[in-house]
């Protein structure tokens, strides 16, 4: 069953036409990776899915509901179902790790602090940070902060998780601990849409890879085919440059 359905999506930044008619279908449990050179529109595409970017033309539906309304209530409804993890973690520095995870479910959904506390502890254990509940974000390494950010997004129980270059700001030795968490989520059946430069990871974990070029989906398919037999010269160049 298709969970996210994007058709004919166009977006302009002033004179720049950054998305030129994108069509993409994501089914429940899919792990989709968006790859491409910087400026190809992959991050913009990802950010339209939870309304951080608006779009000019086309449509996005999530579980049958149409996205695109600029009204605040509709956006909030959408974001309740779409979680996001960012390149720079974006943890709240004035809150402890535990509070970072519990704040949104408490404030937005009004869930009880008692239950939230248990869930937060469970989520921290899941990302391998069981002992960090009372730590402050700036006491953690980048990899640990990013794992907290993943736990924080999961605390909202989203249907889809968007990952925007979540290992790009990490020191190389910290990349794997974050990717291991994402890999586990994928195995558990979480629907993931990721922008990443980790091609090996994309090949191993995703079941659909989308190569974006100049604001369009240039080539897409199963990673085994896409990486070993790229059809277009643009993807051939890209693959030989990054792998």
């Amino acid at each position: 069953m298709s969970l996210v359905n994007i058709t004919g999506l166009h977006k302009h930044y002033g004179p720049n036409h950054v998305l030129k008619g994108v069509d993409l279908t994501v089914r429940q449990g899919d792990v989709v990776t968006l790859i491409g050179r910087s400026g190809s529109g992959k991050s913009t595409l990802l950010r339209t899915i939870n309304g951080l970017e608006s779009f000019d033309q086309g449509s996005i539906t999530l579980a049958g509901q149409t996205i695109g309304s600029r009204d605040a209530k509709a956006l909030q409804q959408l974001r309740l179902q779409v979680g996001m993890v960012f390149q720079q973690f974006n943890l709240f520095p004035h809150l402890t790790v535990g509070e970072n995870i519990m704040m949104s479910p408490r404030v937005v959904k009004g869930e009880s602090p008692h239950i939230l506390r248990e869930e937060a502890h469970a989520l921290l254990a899941k990302v391998g940070l069981a002992d960090k509940f009372d730590a402050w974000p700036d006491q953690l390494s980048g990899g640990q902060q990013q794992r907290v950010a993943i736990a924080r997004a999961l605390a909202m129980k989203p249907q889809v998780l968007l990952c925007d270059e979540i290992t790009s700001a990490l020191d190389p030795e910290l990349v794997n601990e974050v990717l291991a968490v994402v890999r586990q989520l994928a195995q558990e059946g979480m629907t993931l849409i990721m922008v990443t430069h980790e091609m090996r990871f994309a090949r191993d974990v995703s079941n659909h890879v989308v190569f974006m070029h100049q604001g369009k989906i240039h080539e897409a398919g199963h990673p085994a085919d896409l990486f070993s037999r790229p059809q277009t010269p643009e993807l051939q160049n890209f693959v030989s440059a990054v792998m």
């Binding site: 939870n50 951080l52 605040a72 956006l75 909030q76 974001r79 309740l80 779409v82 979680g83 996001m84 960012f86 720079q88 974006n90 943890l91 709240f92 704040m103 949104s104 404030v107 937005v108 924080r152 997004a153 909202m156």
Partner: peptide, 15 residues
């Protein structure tokens, strides 16, 4: 990034 991080967690502007 603090605005975006909290928006992505479905907080409205007041929250």
């Amino acid at each position: 990034t603090q605005w975006e991080g909290s928006a992505a967690l479905a907080l409205n502007r007041y929250q």
